[in-house]
Design a protein around this nucleic acid. Structure first.
Lengths: 341, 341
DNA sequence: GTGAAAGCGCTAACAC
DNA sequence: GTGTTAGCGCTTTCAC
């Protein structure tokens, strides 16, 4: 490598090493390292000189080398299913920003239905990520197992069905389901319907269960209407069934805004229903589109940013104390009242 | 480090090194390295034994170590502005998937308006990323400069205003603008309006220019209506102005679906306009929401996946030949006919 | 085709 | 508080 043989001819562009900085500052490489390590024991003077020299040379610590030494990178695997769902996109954005703020670097993996999970695991492990955050709709159990086995800190977002041995965080789905039921009942709806998308995600199941339970506590027996995957199209496809039930007392709960929007849109556009006069609809998540004019959807709001903050906190805590008992965190949800209920 | 002193007591969980594999396979560490390097010269027999031993030990090459040695990681910085715009979310997803497929690992940075760019650069450079892809609305020139200076391959997506010294890719905005004008004119619209969001993004400017030019070629002089940032709210806010121009011959071009949707939604919901009877609206991007019932927006479609494929190809090409002349790639766009024109 | 040896740039343990 | 030393796990000449 020419560069090594002839350090002085080095382009200003090519980055300097701690060795160069040390030489210029008249200190050892350790001193340079210390100057860039918060809390390391170094005199103010030395630090000053190092920082100055570093600036002069355009030096940056090489995180790859640091990682090799420390056996850990700042990388965090961020695993997501399709971001076609605006809620997921918002979540990923919030998480990515928070991770960066907390000194991590998110490595993004968007996984498809049929994707080879094995590979994703390998990629993460290859890079000695310091943690993994999974927000996927269908987080392959494999990834979880492998992370556990490899001792890689893992946080599950918005899932409750996993092994109790990992940290996880989710919205208060029970409260959310109840809030939805209450809102509908308070609005005088007596004929309750819950759309149940085909999804093995526990969040969704939990919301519906809580909804049903609360309805029953009020002497009402909601009808459960099966639907496709929890997205716009499924909601739209369910519209005919719902329209057929048109009554003054009809109140529909969709466990996801994404699906609620499809339903609502088709109900109004295709079946000419007056909402909320002929039917109430309530969603879940409070995605931006829920506030759009056509929908103006009443929904259960989940604070994405707070999710992100607590998720990263959970991750940090585990990184610091790998053996601490797994925690299950909950984020508060609330009713966002708009025009559909 | 205990592990190093006592390799045999190592947990199955903790990963084996090439040394361990070499010993078990009865070869040298070099051989192990070769077995995992496509195209390296190693006999089939040796390779076989190495792979077997590796499997037995659960060995994975440590990419951090590899990167330190090669002076390059598989990491690619993926820089995005807010994913509140569904088009951006789709783009990031497509890019992330493609990068992974091509052997890269996307490091995601979502940048806010007022964010410190300097830091982002540092983070990228710290990690010896092998490239950077910028899809941000407002890609800070600083990042570009610094990448150029540090010889980090860079691809600009959907921007035309940058230095001619970097690779870039964008949709065919000229064709798109023309297509939009033609569609409106073919539908008999003579009173043309173009919403111009306040945005320094060249894509948007280019689309509008092409639109105007084409209109003029048809003897029409479009009105330019200024709007806020290119998002839903700005479109919604512009609705009053547009509604005031209600005519049979009114045709509105929005250089972004995101803004078009806000306009369209408010036009219908708040001002009771019949679209396309009382006004035609055409957007740009073909985001999923453009196909939703309430909007059913006619628009100019940009193939996000093709964007991703070509972007990564551009990146790879530059990584392989750092000195090749910068290229400017274009992706074809097409009219997606729905109900608003 | 194969192994020995030299490093990639950094940090941590240890003496001073 | 500071420098010296010894690696982190890998790839890569260079002989053979």
């Amino acid at each position: 490598m020419v560069r090594a043989l002839d350090p002085d001819k080095r382009l200003a562009a090519a980055s300097a090493t701690s060795f160069d900085v040390a030489r210029l500052a008249g200190v050892s490489r350790s001193a340079v390292s210390r100057a860039f390590t918060p809390g390391a024991s170094i005199s103010a003077g030395a630090r000053e000189r190092v920082l100055e020299a570093a600036a002069a040379l355009g030096y940056r610590v090489n995180h790859v080398a640091r990682a090799l030494n420390k056996q850990r990178t700042d990388l965090v695997g961020l695993i997501s299913s399709s971001m076609g769902n605006p809620y997921r996109a918002a979540q990923i954005e919030a998480l990515a920003k928070r991770l960066v703020r907390e000194g991590f670097r998110p490595m993004l993996f968007c996984i498809d239905e049929g994707m080879d999970t094995e590979q994703v695991i390998s990629m993460l492990l290859n890079y000695s990520v310091s943690g993994v955050v999974i927000t996927s709709d269908a987080p392959p159990a494999k990834i979880c197992e492998e992370c556990a086995r490899m001792q890689v800190p893992l946080v599950l977002v918005d899932r409750e069905d996993e092994l109790p041995l990992v940290d996880s965080i989710s919205g208060d789905n029970v409260k959310g389901g109840r809030l939805a039921a209450d809102a509908l009942i308070d609005a005088g709806r007596r004929r309750l319907v819950a759309l149940r998308p085909e999804s093995d995600v526990y969040s969704i199941t939990a919301r519906i269960s809580a909804f049903v339970e609360r309805a029953r506590a009020n002497g009402l027996e909601p009808e459960i209407l099966p639907a496709g995957p929890p997205n716009y199209d499924s909601g739209r496809d369910a519209a005919a069934e719902i329209a057929a039930r048109r009554t003054e007392g009809l109140g529909v709960f969709c466990p996801t805004d994404f699906i609620a929007l499809g339903l609502l849109d088709a109900l109004q556009t295709r079946f000419g229903l007056q909402i909320p006069q002929e039917a109430s609809v309530i969603g879940y998540d409070d995605i931006p589109q829920a506030a759009w004019d056509f929908s103006n959807l009443t929904t259960i709001g989940q604070p994405v940013d707070q999710f992100a903050v607590e998720t990263v906190a959970l991750l940090k805590a585990r990184i610091e104390r790998p053996d601490r008992p797994p925690r299950r965190e909950f984020v508060d949800v609330s009713l966002v009242r708009r025009g559909t209920v």
